[in-house]
Structure formats: C-alpha cells, structure tokens
Design a protein around this nucleic acid. Structure first.
Lengths: 347, 347
DNA sequence: AAAGTTTGGCAACACGTATTGCCACCGCTA
DNA sequence: TAGCGGTGGCAATACGTGTTGCCAAACTTT
C-alpha cells in the first residue's frame, strides 16, 4: 500500500542507501544518471519519505512547542501567529497548546510536547504555580519563557519593555492634560502586570500627581474583565483618564463606557498596551503601546535555536521596545481604520 | 544522558518488554510486585517514552493537521481553537498551518503535515486553485474539508447553513422595516460567500423587494476589506441596511460608517455572519448569525476519526445550524457587553 | 605495467519502541 | 509420577530511515 524507500530503490535498480543520498544530497555522491533514475522512480511511485522514521534516526523532529495561557486572547493569538511564521521560515513546525489559564492543561501540553520530542519549547506561563517546571527542567529540552517570567526557572525570558511602555502611555495621557488617571491592570502575580503598574506610577510621580487610593484595578486580562473593570472603576466620574494594561481589557472598557453614557475620549481618555490588530478598529480606535509582534516572534525563534545549539550559553536578553500608536481613544485625531495597524507606515 | 526503556528494565531487573507491558497495560499481564518495581524505576529515572519511536512502531502519530486560509481572521482562529479543543479531548494533538491565503503556503503545509505522518487532515481551502489536491488524494490520508468545499475532491465537507442563515439575517433586517438592503460579501469563488448572497437574495425576493443593480460588493473576507466596502458602498446614502457576510468585515464597516458620519443602526442597520467573540464588544455590538463553533469543532473531529476508521464510508453531512444573535447593530436593544457571546444563556 | 587514487555503490547497523513466539515454572489432577 | 493448564517473562523481530565501513572498478600517475 504505502511506498517505502526500498520500493524506490528496486524500481530504480539501486540500493536503498542511494535513494537517501539523492534525497538528502547525501553524504555520498551519486552519478548523474543514477540520480535521474531515482528521481524518476520517486516521481512515478509518489514516494514521500516517512518523517517519523527520519526523526527517530536523526534524533530531531524539526518541531517546536508553544504553550500559551489563553488562545482566545488576541494578544497571545497574534504572538503565536508570528512565532509560527518565524518557525516556518526556519523549516520548523510549531505545536501550539492552549492552557486556557489552567495549570493542569498547561502541564498536560508540556507533557505531550516533550513526549513528542519537540526540539525546543516556548512557554508563556499561565499565572499561578507552574507545576510542570520540574519535568521541563529535567527533560533537558531547551526552552525559553515569553511575555512573563517563570519564578525559579533557569531559562531566559523574552519580555517587552513593560515599565517603559506603561510610563510612556501614561505620560501621553498626562500630556493631554488629564490628571485623574486610573489604572486597570492584570493579575497581581504576573510580571507584565506589575511592571505596567509600576510604569504608570512612575509617570504620575514624575508629573507630581498623587493617585488616589482606589485608582488601581487588578484582575484577569481579557475583554470581559476589562468590561467589569470599567463598570466598577469608572462609573462614578472620579477619573478623566485610564491606563489599561492590555488592549483586550480596553475593548471591554470601551463597551462599559458606552453603557454608562461616558464618552471616550471626551470624558475619559484611554491608553492601553499590546497593539493588537483589533485596537485599530474600535470606536474610537485605541491609543496603545504596540509590541513588535513580528520581531518578537523572530527573536524568540532565533533565541531558542541558539539555545538548542549551545544549551549552556548565558545570554541576557534585552526587553523588546514598544512604540506609541496614537489614535482616537486618548484624544488624538483618530486615523482612518486599518491604517494605524501598520505603524511602520506612519512612522 | 537520555534514559531509555532498557535502562528502566535494567534497574527494575526485568526485560524491556515488561516495561512496555506496564506502560501500556500491555498485551501481557504483569505480576503486581514486578509492576511496582517497574513503576518505581520509571519514577526514579524520570523515564519518558519516546513518542517518535512509538509512532514509528504503531504507525500512528495521534496527530491531526489543520490548514486554514488566514489565521489573522478571528473566525478561523476561533474555529481552529475549537477543533484543537475537541482533538485534545480525544488525545490527539493538532498541527495548525496558516496558509495566509496563499496557495503555495497551503501546499507547503499540507506537504509538511503529510510528511509528518498526520493521522488525518482538516482543510479549509484558500480560495483559488487547490494545488495540493492531487498530492492529498494520493497520499491516502483521510481528510475532510471545512467551511468551504474543494472543487473536484472526493472528501466530505462540513459546512454551515450559509444560505438559511443569510436569509434569516436579511429577514431580520426587513422586519426592522428596512427595505434598501445592501450586501457585502466575500470572494466570488468560495461557496460560503455565494451561498450567503443567495440567501440574501431569497429573503429580498420573498419580501417583494428588488435590489438595485449595485447593491452587492464582492471582496476579501477580513476587516480591512469590510472597511473598504463600507466606504465604497455606503457613502452615498442609498441604503438603510446591509447584510455583511462576515463579522470581521462588519467590524470594518462599522469603522467606515463612523468616519462617514453615518449612524448605526439609526441610518444604516447591520446584520452579519459568524458570531465571533469580538462581535459582542463593538459599538454597537453586532447582530449576527452565530455559527456553533464548539459543536463544529467536535463534529469535525468526530467526522474525521470516523473516516479514519472506515475510510470508504459514504456519509452525507448535514449543514450546521446557525442562530440569530440580536444585538444593537440591527436596531434591537443592545445587550450588556460580554453577555451576548453566550447565546445559550439567553435562549 | 604497477601502484596509487578517485568514483560510485552496497550491505549492515542504529534509532527506541510494540508485539509475538516461545519457554520455564508452579500448582493441580488423575 | 506423569500429564496439563495457567502464569509470568524473555528474546527477537519489525517499523523506515540516515550513515558508515568496505569494496570493485575506473582512472591517474610513476
């Protein structure tokens, strides 16, 4: 039924080894006409080498794994997309696992990927304990953390400039003359969230503004959480601006403001973080600190491949720079839809 | 360095075969204390079976492939997500390939997945020619098409009730008293687009409304295309409603209306198709025909697994029912954000 | 012509697992 | 004591590939 290497060899009148030589521009040279016969036989039989057998022999699967906390969050979806792109460009296939913010599933995926002999692994840890850490460490598979750090891990982490970006966003709100600037953040135990709050604080402090006691909201990333945060934090008119730690949350905030009859940016200005595509199409479009998704994807892949070659190299990774994309939600003129998601065009 | 089955066997004082028996509740029985020794040795050494070797021996990889036309479109992202969920529940890992509407990449992914010996494949074909079809057919790997049909293929296709849904959406706009109903559709050569246009026509015909000549716009799915369509089709005030063939496009239309100073739903009512999560958070939230993503994912996986067991079975697949989710864009009361993406709660 | 060198190719093995043929041993019955 | 069924376990093989040791023949050099 299935056609194997030996079948090709028989038809071409050679040995199986020669077929390998041809397919891999093998370690041995092959006479031109023999090569032609082999290629003809391959074509005629429709032979496709068995990648599994190849992986077993080579001890390489050309597969990378990526475990993200929540695929329904466009930030992770876009990040995953770009990593996949970069991996594909290097002839690697990416396995994507969605932990759905559940440590059990996260562990299950790490486990599955290790069993499948991935050559390397990206982990965007779900918040809370990372049960799979010991297994991951002892597996010896090279891995790196993305977007968040893993407490107690020896692996490097590729992070955005969370603090600097949050600071820049808040400064931009202050530059619009806003002074009562709230902060809607992520879970208290993940680094990007705490760093972004820190950046917000820095900007306020530098401007000599003292935030009121109740001006920080902590909760999940995600649209629904932002929606709740908007209702809980902004209903009473105490604030004239808000820095939101993620675009997803900000979209929920926009929706909440609509229901509360609060106008954006007139009554409350918004600046957020991430730079997902959807931020360019909301009403008003979101002013946001854009993360360089494509570059992050490429960097992440490069970093991991390097680590696969020299596992013990000590690298210190620079935070990825983020860039302000000014749109309508902060009070800036709202650019036409679809343009602002190409910040490289406008800059 | 790496620990193999033989190492476990040595430590447990048995043969490698017995280790297999224990791990798989093997074809042979194992004495209780032997089993205990083996398990202890596995634990002590941190042994993980090599999935590649296992796949080679079993001739099964427990892997399914999915090739989608455009991962940056949330519809496909959500669909992929649900398929992955369903596959995971059946202990299958899903490989996801993003063709980016490029036939070359589509072919490359199909090729890669076949080389990796996937046990089955889902294909959401990019529009245009499907070059990889011969290779796919002759590979003998069971596969099914999703969302769109593949011309000339013998594989079954799982489709939504595109015509009926489009018809219902248009009828809903008519029920709001709108009579000048435009249609923004997808590419002319994909089935869901043409079917949705057909449904729109049916509804108009039944209501005795004759569409004007220039009331259908054809183009890409996706936000940017919708944005363009909005500007091109709705700028002159000829229409008081529009049926949009996808939520993604509709989000672009909303943005275009905002820039044109046209109010939604007051001046132009919108109903669209797909039921992606983002549709519940726009301003106003979108009235849409929701596809049952989770059910489609489960059905798709079940269908493919069935086909893997009995490759030659002839099944005819019912179209998946879609359901109207009424929100603000058509003129219905706009429900609170985040609620309407749980249509099962409200119905 | 003899010796060295290059070319082209084949047989054999290894990768790590699942499974099957076979066997030793124990306890029971006639 | 001989026969017999059942239990537990082992050696060996196959899965399909990449690579290496080895060799024959052709070609080059002395």
């Amino acid at each position: 039924m299935v056609v194997r290497r030996a079948d090709v060899a028989r038809l071409a009148g050679t040995s199986p080894a020669v077929v390998s030589y041809v397919l891999n521009n093998g370690p041995r040279k092959v006479a031109p006409d023999t090569r032609a016969r082999v290629l003809a036989a391959i074509e005629q039989l429709g032979y496709r080498p068995n990648g599994i057998a190849r992986s077993l022999r080579m001890n390489r699967t050309m597969t990378l794994g990526l475990v993200v906390p929540d695929m329904s969050n466009p930030f992770f979806a876009e990040l995953a997309h770009e990593i996949e792109e970069a991996a594909f460009a290097q002839n690697y296939t990416l396995l994507i696992g969605n932990a759905a913010e559940d440590d059990g599933r996260q562990t299950a995926y790490v486990h599955t990927f290790l069993a499948r002999q991935v050559d390397g692994l990206f982990l965007v840890p779900a918040h809370g304990p990372v049960t799979c850490l010991p297994e991951l460490q002892r597996s010896g598979v090279p891995w790196i953390a993305l977007d968040r750090t893993v407490p107690g891990a020896v692996a490097p982490a590729l992070l955005a400039d969370n603090r600097g970006g949050a600071r820049a966003a808040t400064e931009h709100l202050l530059a619009h003359g806003r002074r009562r600037v709230a902060c809607i953040a992520g879970p208290q135990d993940v680094v990007p969230a705490t760093e972004r709050v820190a950046g917000w604080r820095e900007a306020l402090a530098e401007a000599g503004v003292r935030p009121s006691g109740m001006s920080v909201w902590h909760g999940e990333f995600g649209r629904r959480a932002g929606y709740r945060a908007g209702h809980e934090l902004l209903a009473h008119g105490e604030f004239d601006a808000v820095f939101v730690a993620s675009d997803e949350q900000a979209l929920g905030v926009l929706r909440a403001l609509l229901e509360l009859g609060i106008r954006c940016p007139d009554d409350v200005a918004i600046a957020s973080f991430d730079g997902i595509a959807a931020a360019g199409y909301s009403t008003p479009a979101l002013t946001t600190m854009a993360q360089p998704f494509a570059e992050m994807g490429r960097t992440a892949v490069t970093l991991l491949l390097d680590r696969m070659e020299t596992p013990d190299s000590v690298v210190d990774i620079q935070p990825m720079p983020v860039s302000l994309v000014a749109r309508g939600s902060c009070g800036c003129p709202d650019p036409p839809g679809g343009e602002a998601d190409h910040p490289e065009v406008t800059s």
